[in-house]
């Protein structure tokens, strides 16, 4: 089949959604499909710009390319699913969350002016149009599917996607806890840094880049834990795999995360995960006392859980193994089979 995988591209930004979308193209090609990635730059501010940017997708004609038909489009994110195609499938990573559950929070975008409120409502209407006309609708997690149903009434099939290809392995119970995540406020890496301040024996490695890095580094310095909290910035695939292989656990506790690849990567390395009770998607696979620790979003609770896992290597190994069994079930073969069926 000839398949266009469509997604918006915020220039100079690359995160989980982009990795997922590129991996999907690669995996489709490996299975004999002619697949390509179609992106359009996306800027969602100021004012009504989010709507005109969304409208660009509506003008695209992806029914054919270079004189040959495109059999299917697969869209992943707002506003790419506004594209028109008779065989449009949506594998939803997330909606434009500022228009939904993040509205009127510190992470929101829209103010209280009538214009801002109306733009937010238009975004919601666009979702009903773009997602409602999909021939099949998938969501990467129950959390994303639940939000979609609550906000639009549309029902999506839950279809998790595999973690990125890495040389996953377990080299034993190490002496540090690992965070692999984009450094922005919603990822709540503060909790881990503050946990290091609560528990003076805790060693932390923070992998990733993002707009919150300066603030997080300042926080570590301010708490006097800079020597035990190491920021690596962005690192290569081999280094990420090595860090997973040698940590004793990973930390992954964003606020109401959509899906969260971090726990899958950790599990594939046989390492348990510490997450928070309000983390959203990760809670679908991180279970307290089974595959990791689920604690209140408080530094002291995170510190307690980390120390407990470090001091109980047998339990940590068992949790990691249980997680591995879950993550190993999520394969590209299965996912693509359902996506194209």
């Amino acid at each position: 089949m000839r398949i266009a995988v469509v997604r918006p591209q915020v220039p100079f930004a690359r995160g989980g959604a982009e990795i997922f979308s590129d991996a999907l193209v690669d995996e489709l090609r490996m299975r004999g499909h002619e697949a390509d990635s179609v992106t359009v730059p996306f800027k969602w501010y100021p004012g009504a710009r989010v709507l005109t940017q969304a409208f660009l997708w509506r003008l695209l004609d992806l029914t054919e390319a270079d004189g040959k038909p495109i059999d299917m489009v697969v869209a992943t994110k707002f506003p790419s699913y506004l594209v028109r195609h008779p065989e449009k499938r949506v594998w939803l990573v997330h909606q434009f969350r500022q228009a939904y559950e993040l509205d009127r929070t510190a992470l929101g975008q829209f103010g209280e002016s009538p214009e801002d409120r109306a733009v937010r409502r238009r975004v919601q209407e666009l979702d009903r149009v773009g997602l409602g006309e999909a021939s099949r609708l998938f969501a990467t997690s129950q959390n994303v599917a639940g939000r979609l149903e609550r906000s639009t009434g549309l029902v999506a099939e839950v279809l998790p996607h595999p973690a990125q290809e890495l040389d996953y392995r377990n080299e034993g119970h190490g002496d540090f806890i690992l965070s692999v995540n984009r450094l922005d406020r919603a990822k709540r890496i503060d909790l881990l840094i503050e946990a290091a301040a609560v528990e003076s024996s805790l060693e932390v490695v923070v992998v990733g880049e993002g707009p919150d890095r300066d603030r997080l580094e300042a926080l570590a310095r301010g708490l006097g834990v800079a020597g035990r909290v190491r920021f690596t910035g962005r690192v290569g695939a081999e280094e990420v795999a090595r860090l997973y292989a040698t940590c004793f656990a990973s930390f992954y506790a964003p606020v109401d995360e959509d899906f969260g690849l971090g726990p899958y990567e950790s599990f594939l390395s046989g390492k348990p995960v510490i997450t928070a009770t309000d983390a959203g998607g990760p809670l679908e696979i991180v279970r307290d006392g089974s595959t990791g620790r689920v604690v209140p979003p408080e530094a002291a609770a995170v510190a307690d859980a980390a120390v407990w896992l470090r001091e109980h290597p047998d339990e940590a190994t068992a949790y990691g193994s249980a997680g591995h069994a879950i993550a190993a079930e999520v394969t590209w073969d299965r996912a693509i089979g359902r996506l194209l069926s």
Partner: peptide, 13 residues
């Protein structure tokens, strides 16, 4: 919200 700000937003688009 649509009634109060929708016209301005539509015009902007």
């Amino acid at each position: 919200e649509q009634a109060a700000g929708g016209g301005v937003v539509r015009d902007a688009v």
